[in-house]
Nucleic acid binder design. Structure first.
Length: 194
DNA sequence: ACGCAGATAATCT
DNA sequence: GATTATCTGCGTG
């Protein structure tokens, strides 16, 4: 499994891989691809380098964790050659190790919901801004990614990305068919100011 | 099951 | 000043 490819190619191959951090391991069942500068209006790197998205420009296998909606963290792995700033968002997974730890971080929710959604997944893994920019591959950082054998294409479904306003026709969300821990789809809803 | 509103603050224009 | 790669709780059916 090679990460040095465009995000939409890498993303489906990441399904089934194991993401570990801070004593919890999650089997990834849902991801989204975000392309690089000038290629994808929904990508944080669309308009080039900013203080926040610096990790996206790092080498493939870099962890990019960002803060959003005033309270949530979301985790990505960068791919493509260094400098292209494309990434794959870890959207959902099944907790396969460190169950008690994940439960204590997530509060009173069902086991199915422990990592069902990008912010829930990051919380279950104890990931926040302190981990961004570290490598998922060199074993030195707080998180590591164990790549698996790419799943049979027959088991993969795709659709538009969740909560994305632009490029709604692009089907860069990928998930494993029949997995209960795949997050529900929600279209983007513009906020009405009050 | 589904739909909506509120929370809450960094980031970018 | 507007937007946001979201989640939770509460309403209705």
């Amino acid at each position: 499994m090679l990460l040095s490819r465009p995000a939409p190619d890498v993303a489906p191959d990441l399904l089934g891989s194991l993401l570990s951090a801070n004593g919890v391991t999650v089997r990834i069942v849902e991801v989204e691809a975000y392309a690089g500068t000038g290629e994808d209006p929904a990508s944080h790197s669309h308009r080039g380098r900013t203080p926040r998205n610096v990790p996206m420009f790092g080498p493939p296998g870099t962890l990019y964790v960002y803060f959003t909606y005033g309270m949530h963290w979301c985790a990505n792995v960068t791919c493509s050659p260094p400098g292209e700033a494309s990434a794959v968002l870890f959207r959902a997974g099944e907790v396969v190790d460190g169950l008690e730890l994940a439960r204590s971080r997530r509060g009173r929710v069902s086991d199915r919901d422990l990592a069902r959604g990008p912010a829930r997944l990051a919380q279950a893994l104890g990931l926040d801004g302190a981990a961004t920019g570290t490598s998922l591959l060199d074993g030195a950082g707080p998180a590591s990614l164990r790549l698996g054998v790419p799943p049979d294409p027959v088991a993969i479904r795709s659709g538009p990305r969740v909560g994305v306003a632009t490029a709604a026709d692009v089907r860069w969300r990928f998930w494993l068919a029949g997995e209960p821990t795949v997050s529900p789809y929600r279209p983007h809803v513009p906020k009405r100011r009050r």
